[in-house]
């Protein structure tokens, strides 16, 4: 197998697996930048995956080829609504943010599986007919060398994810909204003194994480799993959390980390068919994202620091 053929397999698979992680990691970035830890990303992906599949199955006849995209929007909306629970608990009622996130994860699994049994009377949904499918991107796939590797046999969602990352970077670092969001995550008291509504900004942060987590779950369900059951989302949300940290709470960093983790995931799946890699036990590839994140946190490869006020409820009277 030549290097070209290997790249033509690895790059699209990497981007396929990276897309849900990118969306969700961006969501985590918005939430944590506003000062709210969001362990519930996993649960938000579960909600997104469930909603996308159910909507897709119900409306595929009407919407045809547009089904997965519309389902994605609905999944986004479901994510926003679900994340509102986390926002109310952790911002308004000053719940421990980590505990609230854990509850989000437990609740998401319980609610979705309950509803799957309620709607379909079985533990798992049918397989969707209208999923995100492999395409050759017009024009770009004709570019010599780069075209076949990056733009052939690939998915639109991967490129939407990368565009979202750039937009998120612009919003967080180049707009007034982003400056305010970061300020309430670093020093809410100072931000409050300057007239910024800390509570409102934090709500925005958490709801955005719900929107993006919902999209992440919807992409995973409609591009990778194609149905919804108890094991559909198993750790992708936490891996997205890891990508956010590995990317140092920066949208483009999170994207880079998500692509790298997608690479590790795809190698663990297709590695056995590649020369050189076939003899490496895939356990190394499976644990790589997690172990690397721990190493990154200890500071051996450039220290990763969370926003200063992340995890601390803001109580005005304590000023």
């Amino acid at each position: 197998m030549g290097i070209m053929e290997i790249l033509m397999i690895i790059v699209p698979t990497t981007l396929l697996w990276a897309a849900p992680l990118i969306f969700t990691a961006l969501g985590g970035t918005f939430s944590e930048r506003s000062g709210v830890i969001n362990i519930g990303l996993e649960g938000l992906m579960v909600i997104g995956a469930f909603t996308a599949i159910v909507f897709n199955l119900s409306f595929a006849d009407v919407l045809g080829a547009w089904t997965p995209w519309v389902s994605l929007l609905v999944a986004m909306l479901a994510g926003v609504i679900f994340s509102a629970i986390h926002a109310v608990a952790s911002i308004t009622f000053r719940a421990d943010q980590t505990v609230s996130g854990v509850a989000i994860n437990l609740l998401a699994v319980g609610v979705t599986l309950f509803l799957v049994k309620f709607i379909y009377d079985k533990g798992q949904t049918d397989i969707i007919q209208e999923s995100f499918s492999k395409i050759d991107i017009p024009l770009l796939s004709d570019i010599p060398f780069i075209g076949p590797i990056f733009f052939s046999n690939t998915y639109y969602t991967s490129f939407v994810a990368i565009i979202f990352a750039v937009v998120a970077w612009y919003v967080i670092y180049k707009t007034k909204f982003g400056l305010r969001l970061r300020s309430v995550g670093e020093h809410p008291m100072a931000a409050d003194t300057m007239g910024i509504n800390v509570t409102k900004m934090r709500y925005y942060g958490v709801l955005l994480s719900g929107a993006l987590g919902g999209i992440g779950g919807g992409v995973y369900a409609q591009a990778i799993s194609s149905d919804f059951g108890h094991a559909t989302i198993s750790g992708q949300g936490f891996m997205a959390l890891a990508a956010m940290i590995f990317g140092k709470w920066h949208p483009l960093g999170a994207m880079g980390a998500a692509i790298f983790f997608g690479f590790a995931q795809s190698l663990s799946i297709i590695g056995s068919s590649l020369p050189l890699l076939e003899n490496i036990p895939n356990v190394y590839l499976l644990v790589a994202p997690y172990v690397l994140t721990i190493i990154a946190l200890t500071g051996f490869i450039g220290r990763a620091d969370a926003p200063k006020a992340s995890g601390v409820p803001y109580v005005k009277e304590n000023r």
Binding site: A89, V102, A103, L107, G110, L113
Partner: peptide, 20 residues
């Protein structure tokens, strides 16, 4: 569906966490 209990447990966690 037995998941009803998972929902109840998750809600209890929420309510205890939101003791405020």
């Amino acid at each position: 569906p037995n998941e009803l209990v998972d929902i109840i447990i998750a809600l209890i966690v929420f309510f205890v966490a939101s003791s405020y």
